[in-house]
């Protein structure tokens, strides 16, 4: 691996001679790691990678969002239209429905998954619980199965003709007859949210459980001596200690919810009507059904802006980027 602990490092003059004699990249790296540029050197590979992949698409996207450009009409070419496409979007009634849906989807999705994940993690975290190790792996499975399979299997579970969940609910007397959960504007969004809750809660359980495990026992013991109840301990110790994990997990999951419509595509494809239509579906539809890349770019830029603002606020309030 790295021969940086060779004598050369202990004795700077040796090191120079060493290098003059025989060029050793590891020595050079070792030396570099002592310099003030090291922070940037470490950051460089990933930063370059991210720069290479992100700058051009985002820049091109912003440029396109001011152009009228349809991929299928090469003959029409590109035409600068300024903010026209943004203005048109905000003039459309449907656009507000789509934004509202996206908001519902992300807020309810992230919150429900967080809460269920938290409760599960709290239960798993009790020391007196047996079989926790097996339960932890089993509870992760929904998050592991590919979304194509997850989507179709839930479509089958909730199907209005073949669905076992309908069968059980009828048997329990909760329902009179099989329901078509994805066909009604009232139940479609809750049904998709339920599926995503199933899929997303393990992510939070995994991270929050890990976070809880790292909280020193002494803190709880001290609180117990003071006569704190379980709830008080949770509020005074667990929650504050968990904040960084909650922030990191929350932001990752939130962004994932905004940007990955894969479950939605299988289950409702935005329907019925516009009941489950979200921004990510909209961008995909405009780009690859309608080939209106100009307008799709405008939607993407709007999404980026909204996410940026939220993430910045989130970072600010949680203090995750503060120098500690």
């Amino acid at each position: 691996m790295n021969p940086s602990s060779s004598p050369s490092v202990n004795n700077p003059s040796d090191a120079i001679k060493h290098q003059v004699k025989r060029f050793n990249p590891f020595d050079l790296l070792g030396k570099l790691s002592e310099s003030r540029y090291w922070a940037y050197v470490l950051l460089a590979p990933s930063l370059l990678l991210v720069l290479a992949v992100i700058v051009y698409p985002v820049g091109y996207g912003i440029f396109l969002s001011f152009q009228q450009f349809n991929l299928m009409r090469a003959a029409l070419g590109m035409k600068f239209v300024g903010l026209e496409q943004y203005i048109e979007l905000f003039q459309e009634e449907d656009f507000y429905i789509i934004i509202k849906n996206t908001f519902t989807w992300v807020v309810f999705g992230a919150c429900s998954q967080f809460l269920v994940g938290l409760i599960t993690a709290l239960a798993l975290n009790r020391k007196s619980i047996r079989g926790g190790a097996v339960a932890r792996v089993l509870l992760l499975l929904p998050w592991i199965i590919p979304s194509v399979v997850a989507g179709h299997m839930w479509a089958l579970l909730l199907d209005s003709r073949l669905g076992v969940i309908n069968d059980i609910l009828v048997w329990l007397g909760v329902l009179d007859s099989y329901q078509a959960w994805f066909a009604s504007a009232k139940t479609a969004m809750p049904a998709v949210l339920l599926v995503d809750l199933w899929r997303g809660f393990p992510f939070f359980t995994l991270l929050l459980y890990a976070g809880m495990q790292s909280i020193p026992d002494e803190l709880y013991e001290a609180a117990e001596v003071d006569g704190a109840t379980g709830w008080q301990k949770f509020i005074a110790i667990t929650l504050p200690m968990l904040t960084p994990v909650i922030v990191a997990a929350g932001i990752l999951r939130g962004i994932a919810l905004v940007n990955s419509p894969d479950l939605m595509i299988v289950l409702t494809n935005g329907g019925p009507g516009l009941a489950t239509f979200t921004l990510s579906l909209y961008a995909f539809q405009i780009a690859y059904d309608n080939f209106n890349f100009g307008a799709a770019a405008a939607v993407s830029v709007i999404m980026l802006m909204i996410l940026m603002v939220f993430t910045m606020l989130y970072f600010k309030f949680s203090g995750v980027t503060k120098n500690t």
């Binding site: 992100i54 961008a283 799709a296 993407s300 940026m308 993430t311």
Partner: peptide, 10 residues
């Protein structure tokens, strides 16, 4: 994080 924020479509 922007890499996750910009829709992969574009």
């Amino acid at each position: 994080l922007t890499i996750r924020m910009f829709p992969s479509v574009l």
